[in-house]
Design a protein around this nucleic acid. Structure first.
Length: 570
RNA sequence: CGGGCCGUGGCGCAGCUUGGUAGCGCGCUUGACUGGGGGUCAAGAGGUCGCGAGUUCGAAUCUCGCCGGCCCGACCA
């Protein structure tokens, strides 16, 4: 392949609207171009990388018995209505009408459609099955950002497992877990597997694969010592016990003029330390008003509340709603004596007494409150967000919190979809039972961006050989010099014939331009062919990853570099 | 959806406050020189100044509306 004939539109400057390193570099190196917010064209160089990534994934999935499909993007509303998601997912689903005015939508994933196909399975003898595809997904994200990291249209590898029972699902899940580890390792990512919330997906267990990066938007708590790791939406920690001391017979109201915050009350003479206060938050859950209780110094994690309530439309109440519900303004709220609203409390409040909380009367608080004695708690849940430095729930070592990119997510779905969409088989006893299902995803573009986040420097991208658009570039310094350009072509042809992905930079450009471009694009090996070296029958090898250089004999260069590449392909 | 910023040749930007011939760098075309880290010289091509209305003799510039993009937050399979 000749650079002079390729469409590789590199840019000297960073695009003005890019922030994340991967965004800047993918655009500058000519791999992608934006079409509109959250929608990108993949250019030839980017497509080559994506093809390598999908190749790695395909190999591993076929290795665990996966069979490849290709399903439609355009779905009838009917199946989404039957699974309940038509009403559940809201604005994130792209909905449209066809010419007969029928409701259709663009698939945001393919549980429904695969489940419809799984309806053709009749007997447990046909199980297990693992089905997968690479297909575009559409999600009308409220805020696309960071180039390929959060988009509205993207290709995803999604796979689905179908088993007779839970044990089968556990096995399929484990197969995927191991396959994912291999995939991410092979494409050059150092993915951390973490416990995650299943979100609106349903199901009871899920694991996310996270790549540490400043460009990420998820936070993960992990323990360096025992390996515990969880998304902050799920993470827990062990807290030091708080000594409440002797309490009171009954709550006692006291004036707290001007006190609006936990901090105010902690500072006030006769107030209470933050960890001796009860924080009262008001949420609108569906059509109901709920009170959410936390220790004063703790923060609510919204996803934990969503998981605990099982609600999908939930938001903080506004000032008027709070007044209407409790008769006081934020700053003096409490749950003592509240019976007309549902009250949920964080586990850290269990058994606590002699606490201070709002009196539902502006300017007054209650002290001497015992949580169980004085409040009607409808449910206890883990609701608070873990903070860095708190003790690991497994081994008490201090937890580390890191920003990460979610590059893969695997779910144990269970029978939600198969029951609603009627995908059942007869078991060994001739009894009809819903297939037990798992679902597993990897975003291809996001994975590519994550690799860039993990492998770049000031000069540009530094692809691992396994996903590089080209493994070797042969840079001809002076293409007008016949001897130089012929030498370059010979090396190029020899590498190509040896099965190496090689590109010949035969452009009539200054050497500096070609060096900069090859480093920006991030090709792992560069063989420089120039008149100076040729006088001694030498060419120069440059390794992008660490800048290592060595001189090679002209006639052995292709052979040696082929070996280097083969080694790194693994 | 709330807050902030921004739309001017392919890319990056100036011009707008104070209305009057649309500019710079890079890139692009042609030619010459040059040839181991984005070279030099010469001659060129390329712009409905996001869109629409208004004010004005005259609008990139002022006013209003709309559209689009980025960032923070909300949200997020």
């Amino acid at each position: 392949m000749r650079w002079s004939e390729s469409f590789i539109p590199t840019l000297r400057d960073d695009p003005a609207d890019a922030e994340a390193a991967s965004h800047k570099l993918l655009v500058r190196a000519g791999l992608i171009r934006q079409l509109m917010s959250g929608s990108y064209s993949i250019l030839p160089l980017g497509q080559r990388v994506c093809r390598k990534i999908t190749g790695v994934i395909r190999t591993e999935l076929e290795g665990i018995g996966g069979q490849e499909f290709e399903l439609p993007c355009l779905h009838p509303a009917d199946v989404w209505k039957r699974s309940g998601r038509w009403d559940q997912v809201g604005d994130e689903l792209f909905r449209l009408n066809d010419r007969r005015d029928a409701d259709v939508c663009l698939g945001m994933t393919h549980e429904e459609i695969f489940t419809v196909l799984a309806g053709e399975l009749r007997s447990y003898k046909q199980l297990p099955q693992i089905w997968f595809q690479f297909q575009s997904k559409f999600r009308d994200e409220p805020r696309p950002k960071s180039g390929l990291l959060r988009v509205r249209e993207f290709v995803m590898k999604d796979s689905y497992s179908f088993d007779v029972d839970e044990a089968g699902l556990d096995h399929a899940f484990k197969l995927h877990f191991d396959a994912y580890r291999k995939i991410f390792e092979k494409i050059g990512l150092d993915a951390l597997a973490v416990e995650a919330s299943s979100g609106a997906m349903g199901g009871k267990e899920s694991v996310e694969f996270m790549q540490a990066s400043d460009a990420g938007e998820d936070f993960v708590a992990s323990c360096e010592k025992c390996g515990y790791a969880a998304n902050l939406e799920k993470a827990t920690s062990e807290l030091a016990a708080v000594d409440d001391g002797p309490g009171l017979e009954a709550p006692e109201k006291f004036p707290t003029p001007g006190v609006r915050t936990i901090e105010d009350l902690a500072q006030m003479e006769g107030g209470a330390a933050a960890d001796r206060q009860i924080k009262t938050l008001v949420y609108i859950v569906g059509k109901e008003t709920w009170l959410v209780l936390l220790r004063g110094d703790h923060t609510l994690n919204d996803q934990k509340l969503i998981d605990a309530t099982g609600a999908f439309d939930l938001r903080p109440a506004n000032e008027e709603e709070i007044r209407a519900a409790l008769g006081a303004s934020p700053g003096s709220l409490g749950a003592v004596g509240v019976t007309n609203h549902k009250v949920v409390a964080d586990l850290a409040l269990e058994g606590r007494s002699a606490m201070t909380t709002g009196a539902n009367e502006d300017g007054f608080h209650l002290r001497g409150v015992s949580v169980e004695r004085d409040m009607e708690i409808a449910g206890w849940s883990d609701l608070r967000e873990v903070e860095a430095g708190e003790a690991c729930p497994m081994c008490q070592n201090p937890l580390v919190v890191r920003k990460t990119i979610e590059i893969g997510h695997i779910f144990k779905l269970g029978t939600r979809y198969t029951e609603l969409l009627d995908a059942k088989v007869l078991d060994q006893n001739g009894k009809n039972r819903p297939i037990v299902m798992g679902s597993y995803g990897i975003g291809i573009g996001r994975a590519m961006a994550a690799v860039v986040e993990a492998h770049h420097d000031e000069a540009g991208i530094a692809w691992p050989v396994t996903v590089a658009p080209f493994e070797v570039v042969v840079t001809v310094l002076n293409p007008k010099d016949v001897e130089t350009s012929e030498a370059g072509e010979h090396i190029h042809d020899a590498l190509r014939d040896a099965g190496i992905d090689v590109i010949l930079d035969d452009r009539d450009e200054r050497p500096g331009v070609k060096f900069k471009d090859s480093e920006l694009v991030g090709i792992p090996y560069r063989i420089t062919v120039g008149p100076k070296g040729l006088k001694n029958k030498k060419v120069e090898l440059y390794r992008r990853r660490d800048g290592h250089q060595e001189e090679l004999d002209l006639h052995r260069a292709a052979e040696i570099v082929t070996e280097y590449v083969a080694e790194e392909r693994r």
